[in-house]
């Protein structure tokens, strides 16, 4: 008795009437997404900028310096190696690896985009950029020793001045890093989280249990003095004939220390840095040429 069963299971008439109204409208199928390049003749396509560096920055113009030393280092190095790119203001949540910067590259041929996180950037640049005349070996002992000085003493002073010093934290760091979410309690909470992270980072790298700002700044100035001696009268570090990775690394800190309006206890390290004329000139040389 299938008909009886069907009758029993049949929806009431008014519901059937209601459901028969759907779909109300059927839209036409969307075409696959197109990009600007599709409308351009292939000759100009070659020159369009397809690379985007996602970093902590205020602008999409790649000649505006990022306010984060690591981002600025890669931004500078990409510029030094003549790779055209634009920057994109971003934050950690955007990054697949959780840290900025990263570069997205889209190739013209198959229109796929690829993400290069910062640890792989050096290799990518080496493979894709025009060869550089800077032949400084990044595996060299001196290179690594001085690099650890920048990543140690100089970075600690930067962290203290920008994240732990309350004056700069509220006037520089919080407004810059939380520009996209400038809602009152959130920016303050993020600020205190960043501050705690900076304290932990300094504690980890310090050999003393009770580090103080005075020690941190003294060590940074000692580091700048060592870098100044290393640079001596040369144009670029390690006597190279063209700027390289190490120049970008030093510039990332010297540029930000000299050009952000750092107040509070941070003035001590900025004044210390100004005492090394050749480092200030080195900063100016890169800034004038690429920014």
């Amino acid at each position: 008795m299938p008909s009886a069963l069907q009758d029993a299971l049949r929806a009431p008439a008014f519901i059937r009437r209601l459901f028969s109204q759907f779909p109300l409208v059927t839209h036409p199928v969307d075409p696959p997404p197109m990009c600007v390049e599709d409308f351009q003749p292939s000759a100009t396509r070659q020159h369009s900028i397809n690379h985007t560096l996602y970093s902590f920055t205020d602008s999409t113009d790649s000649s505006i310096a990022s306010f984060n030393p690591t981002c600025l280092k890669w931004q500078t190095y990409l510029k030094i190696r003549n790779i055209p790119f634009k920057t994109q203001p971003s934050n950690n949540h955007a990054s697949p690896s959780g840290s900025l910067p990263f570069l997205t590259i889209s190739s013209q041929s198959d229109r796929t985009s690829q993400i290069i996180p910062s640890p792989k950037l050096a290799k990518w640049i080496e493979e894709h950029a025009v060869g550089s005349v800077n032949t400084v070996d990044t595996d060299d002992g001196d290179y690594r020793a001085f690099s650890s000085l920048v990543e140690g003493a100089v970075r600690d002073a930067w962290l203290y001045a920008l994240y732990i010093d309350p004056e700069n934290l509220s006037s520089l760091t919080i407004p810059k890093y939380t520009a996209q979410i400038s809602l009152w309690p959130i920016s303050q909470i993020l600020g205190s989280q960043m501050r705690q992270a900076a304290i932990d980072a300094i504690r980890k790298s310090s050999t003393s249990t009770l580090p103080t700002a005075t020690d941190i700044y003294e060590r940074a100035i000692e580091a700048f003095s060592a870098l100044s001696i290393l640079l001596s009268g040369d144009t670029w570090f390690f006597g190279a004939s063209e700027a390289g990775m190490f120049d970008a690394e030093v510039f990332a800190y010297t540029h930000l220390l000299l050009n952000l309006e750092i107040g509070g206890s941070g003035r001590e390290v900025v004044e210390g840095l100004r005492g090394f004329g050749n480092l200030v000139e080195h900063e100016e040389r890169i800034r004038r040429r690429w920014f």
């Binding site: 650890s148 000085l149 990543e151 000692e222 060592a226 001696i229 290393l230």
Partner: peptide
């Protein structure tokens, strides 16, 4: 020399870090 002293500062930091 001056450069060696600078290297000494840098290697101190390198040794501790690595």
């Amino acid at each position: 020399t001056g450069l060696q002293k600078a290297q000494s500062v840098a290697y101190r930091s390198f040794i501790r870090k690595t």
